[in-house]
Each structure stands twice: as C-alpha cells, then as structure tokens.
Computed example of a mutant assay.
Amino acid sequence: MPDTSPAPEPSGAIADAYRGNWVDRLAPEAWKPYFRLSRLDRPIGTWLLLLPCWWGLFLAIAATGGARWHDAWIFAGCGLGAILMRGAGCTWNDITDRGIDGSVARTAARPIPSGAVSARAAFAWGCAQSLAAFCILITFNWAAIGLGILALLPVTIYPFAKRFTWWPQIFLGLAFNWGALLAWTAHTGTLGWPALLLYVAGMAWTLFYDTIYAHQDKEDDALIGVKSTARLFGDATPRALAVFLVAAVALMGLAVIVAAPDGEIGMLVLALIGPWAMGWHMLWQLRRVDLGDHDRLLSLFRSNRNAGLLPVLFFAAACLA
C-alpha cells in the first residue's frame, strides 16, 4: 500500500508559514532561523508594508504631472526597504514577545521561544537589517530621510501595545502605513494632505485585516492576558469590520480628490476606481468571515495583498491619464 500520510513539517517550520516556502526548501540550515525571524517564509506582511508606499508614490506622480527617473529607484527602494524593515520589525517583535510566544500555539515554534536563536543574536540580526534599510533611505531627499527615521518610533512601540491597550492594531497601522507618507515625500519633497489621508486610510485597512488575523489567537490571548481588537469586538467583529471598510474607502477617495490637479478629470476618475475596487474586495472578505474557522481567517488575511494592489494599479494608470 502506498504511504498516504501527510508529509512531515520541515524542522523549525512555523505554523502559519506557506507550505513549501523557499526558506524551508532552499535556505542554508544555519540561516533558516534568521530568515524565519524576518518572516521571509511569510511574505504577506512585506506586501502589507510595501503597498502603502506604492500608493503614496503613484498618487504623488499622478498629482504632480509625471514621473522622473528617480521614481524608479523610489519604487524599487521601497520594495527592498519593506523586506528589510519588515524583517527588522518582526525580529524586534519576537525579542519583546519571547516570554509570550511560547504560550501561544501559533507562535511557539518561532526561533526565539524554540531556542533556535538567542535574543542577543536576534538583536544583532535586527540591527543589521535596520542598517541595510538605512543605506537605502539615505538615497532619498532630506524630508523623506527624516520621516524614515521617525518611523522607528511606532515600530519600537508596537510590540508593547497589546499589553496596555485593546487597540494594538492602531499601533500596527501607524507603523505599517508610514510608507505612504515617506514615498509621497520622496517624490514631492514635502509632506502633503493627500499623503496624510492615505496614511489614515491605510490605518483603517490595517484595523480591518489585522482584526481578522487576531481572531486566530483570541483564546490563547485571553489565557495570557494579551489584548486585541478581536477580543474587544468578539461576536460584533463583522460590524466593526464594516466601519473600518467604509473608513478606508472614504479616506482613500478623499486623498485622491485632494491630490487631483484642477481639470484633470481623467486622472481623478481612474484614481478613484482604486479605493472603490479595494472596497469591493474588502466587502467580499467581510461576507466570507467565519470567526471560528482559523484556516479561512488566515486565507482572508492573506488576500489583502490583492486588495491593496488594486489602488496601486489604478493610481499607476492615473499617472498616464
């Protein structure tokens, strides 16, 4: 009889990582724990950090009437920076949560609580990633550099937020959507109202997707006293998600309207399709939410890469209008 039992998990694999990801398959054994610290086996977080950067860049290009050669580097630099800073942020998160992660089923196998990496080695790894990201940041203008340095504040605070507030997702939103401010400023040289509106829209989006995500851990979180919007809203979560959906779409649409140059109707119409399309995707997610189905919750959370890409595509199209 052929063996039909499930294939064993690779050594050190994390519960919510993609099966067959490149870290488990291809990375050298000595580097696997460090790559897992950086969540390179779970790229969705990098996408969620990167997409607001591209929102800000393409809306800035559309608003100012055209791209410059340096915008290609801003586009690529945001991509590289998102990988590095997401890795550094997750490493810091795991250092601060090392006393909690071992008590949560989904996180018990992470490199620090499992003993694969020491806290000291993890700190050095986080510093190396931050330094590499800083080397990218200093290729931008001075205003963007200042914003990039300031971004360390919400990144540093976020891991502690679940200890003192029921709204840690707000602090995640502050950190994860900073790229909307930075990329807009990297193109224009100054911070503007459209970027600020995009930033707050992104925060509403983060509240939407991370509340969905947090429902996977609500039982463990309750046992160890960790707070989250999932625990705060409980069975009323769908109503809260609807509010976050409307806020994200309305604020992003307002950002487009404020950014649109006078008389540029084509740009305005194309760009406004972006938040409208994203809103429909979020509504699709909302209709599929099942708070007791962890696999579905994880799948819906991951689908936000596609939701966030929709404004990128239409903002990019608006640059050509």
Score class of each variant (00 low, 15 high):
Gly65Thr: 10
Ala17Trp: 05
Ile100Phe: 15
Met203Phe: 06
Thr229Leu: 12
Gln216His: 08
Cys319Thr: 14
Ser5Tyr: 11
Leu40Ile: 13
Val312Leu: 02
Ala175Asn: 08
Arg231Trp: 02
Ala248Arg: 13
Asp290Met: 14
Pro311Tyr: 00
Leu131Glu: 00
Val200Glu: 02
Leu197His: 00
Leu48Asn: 11
Ile170Asp: 02
Gly81Val: 00
Ser5His: 12
Thr185Gln: 07
Ala17Asn: 11
Asp41Cys: 11
Ile112Lys: 08
Trp55Thr: 03
Gly102Cys: 10
Leu131Ile: 15
Ala236Phe: 02
Ala82Trp: 01
Cys319Lys: 14
Ala67Asp: 11
Val117Leu: 02
Ala271Asn: 05
Asp210Leu: 05
Gly173Ala: 03
Trp22Glu: 09
Ala318Glu: 05
Pro311Leu: 03
Gly102Leu: 09
Val243Ile: 10
Phe123Glu: 08
Glu9Asp: 15
Leu297Trp: 11
Gly189Cys: 08
Thr190Ser: 06
Tyr18Trp: 12
Gly126Arg: 01
Leu59Phe: 14
Trp92Ile: 14
Ala108Trp: 02
Tyr199Val: 00
Arg86Ala: 00
Ala318Ile: 10
Gly77Phe: 13
Leu153Asn: 04
Leu232Trp: 15
Ala151Ile: 04
Thr211Trp: 06
Glu29Arg: 15
Asp16Gly: 13
Leu232Gly: 07
Leu300Glu: 04
Phe58Ser: 10
Ser5Cys: 10
Trp125Val: 04
Pro113His: 10
Lys32Ile: 06
Leu297Pro: 01
Cys127Ala: 15
Ala161Val: 09
Leu268Cys: 14
Asp220Ile: 06
Gly81Arg: 00
Glu29Trp: 08
Gly179Arg: 12
Arg110Met: 14
Trp166Asn: 08
Ile265Met: 10
Ser130Phe: 07
Ala214Arg: 00
Pro28Ile: 09
Gly146Thr: 00
Gly65Tyr: 15
Gly56Tyr: 01
Arg98Tyr: 14
Asp71Trp: 05
Gly266Leu: 10
Leu152Glu: 03
Ala240Ser: 12
Val258His: 06
Ala27Gln: 03
Asp295Lys: 10
Met282Leu: 15
Ile83Leu: 15
Phe164Asn: 02
Val23Tyr: 11
Pro159Arg: 01
Asp295Ile: 01
Asp262Glu: 14
Gly279Pro: 00
Ala27Leu: 12
Tyr209Ser: 04
Glu29Cys: 04
Pro33Tyr: 10
Arg98Lys: 11
Ile100Ser: 05
Lys218Gln: 14
Arg106Met: 13
Phe301Trp: 00
Met252Val: 00
Ala242Ile: 03
Asn177Ser: 05
Tyr213Gln: 06
Asp41Thr: 05
Trp184Ser: 06
Leu241Glu: 02
Val104Leu: 06
Gly192Gln: 15
Leu313Glu: 09
